[in-house]
Design a protein around this nucleic acid. Sequence first.
DNA 1: ATGCCTTTGTGAACGCGTGCACAAAGATTG
DNA 2: CAATCTTTGTGCACGCGTTCACAAAGGCAT
Lengths: 263, 263
Amino acid sequence: MATGRNHRPATSRSRGIPEATVARLPLYLRALTALSERSVPTVSSEELASAAGVNSAKLRKDFSYLGSYGTRGVGYDVEYLVYQISRELGLTQDWPVVIVGIGNLGAALANYGGFASRGFRVAALIDADPSLAGKPVAGIPVQHTDELEKIISDNGVSIGVIATPAGAAQQVCDRLVAAGITSILNFAPTVLSVPEGVDVRKVDLSIELQILAFHEQRKAGEEPTGAASEADTAPPAAPPAVAVAKRPPESGSDGDLPAVMPA
Amino acid sequence: MATGRNHRPATSRSRGIPEATVARLPLYLRALTALSERSVPTVSSEELASAAGVNSAKLRKDFSYLGSYGTRGVGYDVEYLVYQISRELGLTQDWPVVIVGIGNLGAALANYGGFASRGFRVAALIDADPSLAGKPVAGIPVQHTDELEKIISDNGVSIGVIATPAGAAQQVCDRLVAAGITSILNFAPTVLSVPEGVDVRKVDLSIELQILAFHEQRKAGEEPTGAASEADTAPPAAPPAVAVAKRPPESGSDGDLPAVMPA
DNA sequence: ATGCCTTTGTGAACGCGTGCACAAAGATTG
DNA sequence: CAATCTTTGTGCACGCGTTCACAAAGGCAT
């Protein structure tokens, strides 16, 4: 989870659809779309749950927040459910989005097919590098940062994707917000601060790997030697005054992305 | 979150560090590294918490699971804490990783600087497209899928990144697991099924956007007209037998990634 | 050395999310 | 039309995660 600030009771109070449920709706939608393409008319909660990788009881409860769209003894009508979830997620309308920071990642996002097929339309690609301006990426010409405000207001964009290096992210964020953006998907490894009412979701590649490393280390140090608990308990030095095993600062400042766009 | 199967009590039972805490440790580590580079000797929980974008009470409780590394009245020793968290996350050792599927996204990942600076080393890039073989991406030559098993065992790789199209993901996953991989970071929009003992974390770009769209729609339909609740309650047709507003199947099969690698 | 001030570490309360288990609902069969 | 069988929808209980609030701990000034 990653909402902009830690405000809001985590539960979306409106119609009372729990945030956890909202996060799973796209999962169900994906599974349902696949079924729809195979012309499967109905699914049971059990089947759909396994296709989506969740518990069937959880799925039924999730759907119960949307209303009673199933038929007892039969299951759910696939087409109807696809529509209901799409509507609930706001996918029946087209959402223009802008991508800021057209480095490797930004380009990958621009080429990502999963956007267009879900009601999202890449309205513009924006980068601070003047030499990129005009060059097409994924068939869309990159525009310079100077145009940012104009692009957003002209196209009525309300969702922005930040794929810049960490150093530029907050500045870009501020400009996006000032220009009217109210939802941000942030790929830069920084904590963005935004005013109340703006949603931020964060995707951090390196964090995911670190979490995996934690579990991996756990697995490794489970049975082999008994030395695991030893190295665990013995700190290399007393709390204050240490300089242990500090990895050399590697390259420049910490947070880094492949992209261009200087700070 | 996204563990392979819905097994395991969500809490990592070992030394009893809650999963939610583990997920935040990389966040703290990032903030601490930045402080370390600025040669800041100590931080209070309040300062660090705000830098990491979390609540200070939460941060203190998180640290309490690791041990008592702070000094009352003063705060935490930055260097020491960096070391402790690094060790806890298993970042004091180098983790070789392989990236499978070198499309736009795979290339972006290969170029991502945040990996190397965190103890992760890209051991190999793998793709099924023979025409890519040998070509260097981010300075590393791409190798063909045939070599997958050999690469993994030769380098002792235990973490794999899947950046293939959805259609190929499960096959790749199976081969990775068979070859000895026990942690997988999955970028393909599919539910992977893996045997017990293998961890899977999922990053789905389109899902994040859909969640944003949900909240965005919410904001939009909050005050404008009173028509919101109307369209909300009236289904376009009765549950069975409908063909409402179904978006045309767009392009090919649903889950798609920019990458190459045919199924 | 003593008292004050800052900040940690944590006990306890609360709320969300998950999963169980079952009653109600509808379809289907004879 | 009645009985049976399947599958939904949900009441309930439990556990994890978050937050509050405060006592204990240590530094620092006098």
